[in-house]
Design a protein around this nucleic acid. Structure first.
Length: 267
DNA sequence: ATGGTAGCGCTGCTA
């Protein structure tokens, strides 16, 4: 089974790229973030035509998450458990059962500046996510919570730790929140395959030519529970999908990441 | 080098 995650930075702008990627990477499940689409505008038929069912949760302009699956998609739930749709201002979390795996697509708030109200809201949101998992799931079940965590878990996950001194994504509090998921029973699937390889990034700033200088961060993660972790065989950041092609509009500032594991529902 | 680019949508915010 191949589960992927990709912050597409507008599914409207990126749909041809996503369709192309689905056709050659052929994930069984793709979690998307920053679709920037209201539910009424979600291009479900484009996914259906490629053999994927979709669940989506967005209100336009900003944020927005989705899950595409070709191994079944049931029990789709937007937001946290018990959260009323009408009270959700920012669409950042969506879960569904795909091929026997509880899949979550997450878009963690950016945080903007350390100490700002947005930073505090990011930490609070991460705590709420952890509470939701603890209430709704058990780590002995197959779980994959995938998405843009906006956290680089270790210094090896940023191109230059000194350049991020005092910045978000690398603070002890954010890293502690990330560790909280690990302590609860999830594994950083990418690190199971590449335990100590640095310079494996998933995001590069559009500005200053950072992608071409490979000045990036690893902030998109697939966190999986033990039943999946012990079956992981392969993982990859598809850096090719972050490259623009001549004459086309720019790619997303994130690359897709996927993990493969032996699973009966896989196609 | 305290900049730079992209998306949305039409002004400036978010990243």
């Amino acid at each position: 089974m191949r589960i992927a995650t990709w912050n597409v930075n507008s599914l409207k702008a990126r749909l041809p790229k996503v369709e192309e990627w689905l056709s050659y990477a052929a994930p069984d499940v793709l979690c998307m973030q920053e679709t920037k689409l209201a539910d009424a505008a979600f291009p479900a038929m484009a996914f259906n035509a490629l053999g994927y069912e979709v669940a989506f949760h967005g209100n336009g302009r900003w944020n927005g998450v989705a899950i595409a699956s070709r191994v079944g998609l049931e029990q789709a739930r937007p937001g946290f458990a018990g959260e009323e749709l009408s009270e959700i201002e920012e669409c950042r979390f969506l879960t569904a059962l795909c091929g026997g795996v509880r899949v979550g697509s997450v878009y963690v708030p950016n945080g903007r500046a350390v100490g700002s109200e947005h930073y505090e809201a990011k930490l609070a949101w991460l705590e709420r996510l952890r509470d939701d998992l603890a209430e709704q799931c058990s780590p002995d079940q197959p779980i994959a919570i995938c998405g843009d965590y906006n956290i680089a878990p270790a210094d090896a996950d940023v191109f230059d730790p000194k350049a991020f001194a005092g910045a978000t994504h690398v603070t002890p509090a954010e890293r502690a929140a990330f560790s909280g998921f690990i302590e609860w029973g999830l594994f950083d699937a990418f690190r199971l395959v590449y335990p100590a390889t640095d310079r494996l990034y998933t995001w590069w700033d559009y500005r200053a030519g950072d992608f071409h200088k490979h000045r990036g961060m690893r902030i998109d993660h697939l966190l999986v529970s033990r039943p999946i972790a012990e079956r992981v065989s392969y993982a990859l950041v598809d850096r090719e999908a972050r490259k623009g092609m001549g004459g086309e509009r720019p790619p997303s500032d994130h690359a897709p990441v996927f993990v493969d594991f032996d699973w009966p529902a896989a196609r």
